[in-house]
């Protein structure tokens, strides 16, 4: 059952991811954003299959909720009519295929040459309690530093969005 679900979610994630970058029917950024939401939801499904329940919830809340709404807001702010006529150019498609194929070859060759060993049955459970305990004991300092990072990002965004930037 879990194996079938893995194949379903993996296929959906890859299919929607392909539609984000190279949708044959539409070049509209809104379409890409919608398919990115679906990709993220499929990845959340994969996280659940990996027993990372907290991260699956965070993925849906933060990515599909907050980040994508930000994307859609910006797409609507910028009036992007001309994009719908944009066509992929051969040179750029070839360059993209070569580099993507090269990095895919590196990944898969690494995987083939040093395959993951025989696993004992996995027992790691990414529940909220376990993650929270780790986050507030061993990873307390990085956690606090991330809060400073978010503050810096917020100040930067407010400054960048000012009307007459000096």
């Amino acid at each position: 059952m879990q194996d079938i679900l893995f194949y379903i979610f993996a296929y959906l994630a890859l299919q929607f991811g392909f539609l984000v970058v190279a949708n044959p029917f539409s070049r509209n950024p809104v379409t890409s954003a919608m398919f990115l939401v679906l990709t993220i939801a499929s990845l959340a499904g994969l996280f659940v299959l990996l027993h990372a329940f907290f991260l699956a919830a965070v993925q849906v809340l933060v990515y599909a909720g907050a980040v994508m709404v930000l994307f859609l807001f910006v797409i609507m702010l910028l009036d992007l009519r001309a994009e719908e006529r944009e066509r992929l150019r051969t040179f750029e498609v070839v360059a993209g295929l070569i580099s993507a194929g090269a990095i895919l070859f590196i990944f898969l060759a690494t995987l083939v040459h040093s395959p993951p060993g025989i696993q004992q049955s996995p027992t790691a459970e990414g529940g909220t309690i376990a993650l929270g305990r780790l986050l507030f004991s061993h990873y307390l300092l990085p956690f606090e530093i991330v809060s400073v990072l978010l503050l810096v990002a917020m100040v930067g965004v407010v400054l960048l969005s000012k009307k007459n930037l000096k």
């Binding site: 994630a13 890859l14 984000v20 970058v21 993209g96 993507a100 990095i103 895919l104 898969l108």
Partner: peptide, 29 residues
């Protein structure tokens, strides 16, 4: 389904993203 399957899916997704970064010309995409 083991670790290898997930890593293959992850590698494919990464390659798709790289292709998008190089081939598309809209900053948002």
């Amino acid at each position: 389904v083991g670790l290898g399957h997930y890593l293959v899916v992850s590698a494919l997704l990464f390659a798709l993203g790289l292709f998008g970064v190089i081939a598309r010309r809209n900053l948002l995409v």
